[in-house]
Design a protein around this nucleic acid. Structure first.
Length: 418
RNA sequence: GGAGGAGUGGCCGAGCGGCUGAAGGCAACGGUUUUGAAAACCGUCGUACGGGAGACCGUACCGGGGGUUCGAAUCCCUCCUCCUCCGCCA
């Protein structure tokens, strides 16, 4: 931070010197034009006024000398400026957004504060299986062959497993459309500048799969293409808020998580997620309201799925670089004997909009940066963990939650293939 | 992948190496006129950074980056994007 201020001062000082030189060069250049350019009015006037071409050329030559010196000076200053600008830019990309005042100060996820619990945690009157056991026995989850195909943290969903996955996605997507979000289908392989713009680069670069040959990156969430959808544009105030929803593949390297959550479908390299994004006017109260709205949307999905969950207010230490406030939804997962994160609702103020040049003109025709927010609607297969585990029966079958049945051809029970 | 063509302000569209931050049109905004509206007419109408209390002043920007030149929207190189034709392909 101190270094950034230093660099900024140096930057401005050099800029002022350069501007002074530029002015000198321009003024000199204009004079030369008068003496040299036969097309200019003043040249013609001078000739008519009795000046000889030779005189004018001499005068031009004189000025030229000064301009040559001026050019050298500029080059030198520009050389000095270059590393300073580079450092300035890269430091700027690392500057975090200060958290909202009502965020709890804390170190890590242990300091997150529970806001509410919804639904009741099921008590089993038999020994429940975990989702891996259940899925394997039912023939709907195949971890072994998933790893054969894709390496660690990969999996295959099969039969009713694949259908259940799609059912969850469809339910979530449809519920968002009912809430008047615009359904979108977006690229998942994006240019690096989009990753910088949404704040995933440079800090989270090691978490992304890069396609270096094409200088593109696979996104870890549809938040990226949705938020950047109107980047580098000037919206009209009347268009706001933009509410969008998209299902996309999500690719995550999970670097640094080696050995963590290796069991089952919890932490995996590729999954699908329905994501909601709101782009709204530059108004703190308004974006807070939308934050509650996107949180409520996702809670509605969880309630439709009859899953017990809790909402936590994420503490300062657990916030991402650009997030000013974040609420996570954590869903009860019997095999983990705890609530596991399934949703993350973030609010950014102008952080992403500044990087993305995502602006609008307000009523006073003033250019302003938008505010951006996003939340998971559903991420699968992670959410299949509580769905399978909480809906299992003594005989090893799994009841399909009623909200999903219409997406599974009316099926009510997943049973092992005889 | 190969061969051509093109990228200029919110949009369309001129643009000679200097007087071009950029004609003209549309849209928008303010005004005159009108019972109201339309039409007509007059005016305003890019962004960022720096300086100033301020009216303002300076600098940069004509897809991105680099170069030639005293001087580049204009000339050269390179990359990107779009269009047309050919090839390949869910």
């Amino acid at each position: 931070m101190d270094r950034l201020l230093e660099v900024d001062c140096a930057r401005i000082a050099l800029q002022q010197q350069l501007e002074a030189l530029a002015t000198r060069a321009r003024e000199g250049g204009e004079k030369i034009a008068l003496y040299r350019n036969p097309k200019s009015d003043s040249y013609k006037r001078a000739i008519e006024g009795g000046s000889s071409k030779g005189d004018l050329a001499d005068k031009a030559k004189e000025i030229q000398g000064d301009l040559n010196a001026c050019k050298m000076e500029r080059k030198e200053l520009e050389e000095q400026e270059k590393p300073i600008l580079e450092e300035f830019d890269s430091l700027m990309l690392l500057i975090p957004q200060p958290a909202d005042p009502d965020v709890v100060v804390g170190k890590d996820d242990a300091d997150n504060v529970e806001i509410r619990k919804v639904g009741t945690v099921r008590e089993f009157d038999f020994e429940p299986k975990d989702h891996v056991q259940l899925g394997t026995d039912l023939g709907i989850v195949d971890l072994e062959r998933g790893v054969k195909l894709g390496g660690t943290r990969n999996y295959v969903l099969k039969g009713d497993g694949a259908l259940l996955h799609q059912a969850v996605i469809r339910l979530a997507f449809d519920m968002m459309i009912e809430r008047s979000f615009t359904p979108m289908f977006v690229p998942v392989l994006v240019r690096e500048e989009i990753m910088y713009g949404t704040g995933y680069f440079p800090v989270g670069r090691d978490q992304a799969y890069l396609c270096e040959r094409d200088e593109k990156s696979l996104v870890g969430t549809a938040e990226v293409p949705l938020t950047a959808y109107r980047s580098d544009e000037i919206l009209s105030a009347g268009e706001l808020p933009l509410k969008m929803v998209a299902m996309s593949g999500c690719f995550r390297r999970e670097a640094g998580a080696a050995g963590k959550d290796t069991h089952g479908l919890y932490r995996i390299h590729y999954f699908e997620k329905v994501e909601q994004v709101i782009i709204c006017a530059n108004d703190t109260e308004l974006s807070k309201e939308f934050h509650q709205e996107i949180l409520a949307n996702s809670e509605a999905v969880m309630q439709a799925l009859e899953l017990p969950y809790r909402v936590v207010n994420v503490c300062s230490g657990d916030l991402g670089q650009g997030q000013v406030q974040k609420f996570d939804i954590e869903t009860w997962m019997p095999s983990r004997k705890s609530y596991g994160e399934t949703h993350s609702a973030s609010r950014f103020y102008e952080f992403q909009a500044r990087r993305l040049k995502l602006r609008y003109r307000d009523q006073n025709k003033k250019m302003r940066f938008c505010h951006t927010l996003n939340n998971t609607v559903i991420a699968s297969p992670r959410v299949l963990i509580p769905i399978l585990e909480l809906n299992q029966n003594r005989d090893g079958s799994v009841s399909v939650p009623s909200a999903l049945r219409k997406y599974m051809g009316g099926k009510e029970l997943i049973e092992p293939k005889a």
